[in-house]
């Protein structure tokens, strides 16, 4: 399986929170190879691997398909597009970024900035009130193509760094999707002792909203939120971060099931899969927070892929970590009855 190609395809599919259709189609087509009946339900991609037996436990593997982005709020009479954020974005990196507006067509533009020759030298970070997008078009042209509420993403291509590393936007959390696909490839010829559901969920970045309804629909006994977490880079706190290339980060937190955390650790040890632990002290800010309290509750845990520069157009991951995460997920479902 060409995991790198899968990662590139997923990361380059548009899917700002609330507008995930393209990313949903891409991930659905990948999932159907293993879950032929998979479909899109109210935006979420949902599929079942193998037979469903109501007497068995249901394990849910989840990754979110939305990414941080922007939304069009206004078009000025000069044709500039005003916008606000979808999800948390560092405004310090926005000036002069190339973006693509998903209007009737994909329209490219540049976020306006004042060049150094003219800036007053103060170092205030522009707010959304100060920012706009330049598409090179006049208002009457752009209004034909772009409507208020259209979403916007960074316009960036995936690039291969040296070794096993890749950079693109939206690896948060398309690499989670890729790791689940990789896990399914590992178990594709096996009969499992549990029901296995896969959810590629919407609107995580706006507060895990897709997971709320997806979790309700699937009603899992055990739910693994496969997301990304902070890989150490300069400027981050070492003790709060995992390391790139050192394997999946298994979550341990009062809000998660210690039983599942322990089982993930023992699965990793048994299969000699390198792993890291990520200790949190309450909620996890992942879809696991939703699954755990869905309906009459589920045993939840997080499995996170280390990632640098989260929510920027230049997120960096190590393909090795995606593979190791997929292997751990496969081992876990194989071991679950």
């Amino acid at each position: 399986m060409d995991l790198e190609n899968i990662l590139v395809q997923l990361a380059e599919s548009a899917g700002a929170s609330g507008c995930e259709a393209t990313a949903a189609e891409t991930s659905l087509s990948m999932l159907r190879k293993y879950c032929p009946d998979a479909s899109i339900e109210k935006g979420n991609v949902i599929g079942y691997f193998g037979d469903f037996d109501p007497k068995r436990k249901t394990v849910l593997l989840d990754a979110h398909i939305d990414q941080v982005g922007f939304i069009v709020t206004y078009i000025t009479d000069e044709g500039f597009i005003k916008f606000e954020n979808l999800g948390g974005i560092d405004r310090r990196i926005l000036p002069a970024q190339q973006v693509v507006i998903h209007g009737k067509l994909d329209i490219k533009g540049v976020i306006c900035s004042v060049p150094p020759h003219l800036s007053s030298g103060d170092d205030a970070v522009p707010g959304y009130d100060d920012l706009c997008i330049d598409t090179g078009m006049a208002a009457n042209e752009i209004r034909k193509l772009v409507s208020l509420g259209d979403t916007i993403n960074f316009d960036v291509k995936c690039r291969k760094l040296i070794g096993n590393r890749l950079t693109c936007q939206a690896f948060d959390d398309r690499c989670g999707v890729a790791s689940i696909i990789y896990a399914l490839e590992q178990i594709k010829n096996l009969q499992l002792g549990c029901n296995l559901a896969v959810l590629f969920s919407t609107q995580e970045e706006l507060g895990e909203r897709g997971a709320a309804i997806g979790g309700y629909r699937i009603n899992p006994d055990i739910a693994l939120a496969v997301d990304v977490s902070f890989a150490y880079s300069i400027g981050e706190k070492e003790e709060k971060c995992g390391r790139l290339g050192k394997g999946p980060m298994i979550g341990i937190s009062p809000s998660l099931s210690r039983e599942i955390s322990d089982k993930l650790v023992s699965c990793a040890e048994k299969a000699s899969i390198p792993f890291q632990t990520e200790v949190m002290n309450g909620l996890t800010s992942t879809n696991a927070d939703r699954f755990v309290v869905c309906r009459d509750g589920a045993k939840g845990c997080t499995v996170s892929i280390p990632l640098r520069y989260m929510h920027t157009p230049v997120e960096v991951i190590d393909i090795k970590d995606v593979k190791l995460t997929g292997r751990l997920l496969a081992e876990f479902v194989k071991e679950t009855m």
């Binding site: 902070f230 880079s233 300069i234 400027g235 981050e236 706190k237 230049v314």
Partner: peptide
Amino acid sequence: VIGSAAVHN
């Protein structure tokens, strides 16, 4: 890439 620390942190 010229990265920068995650906005969350």
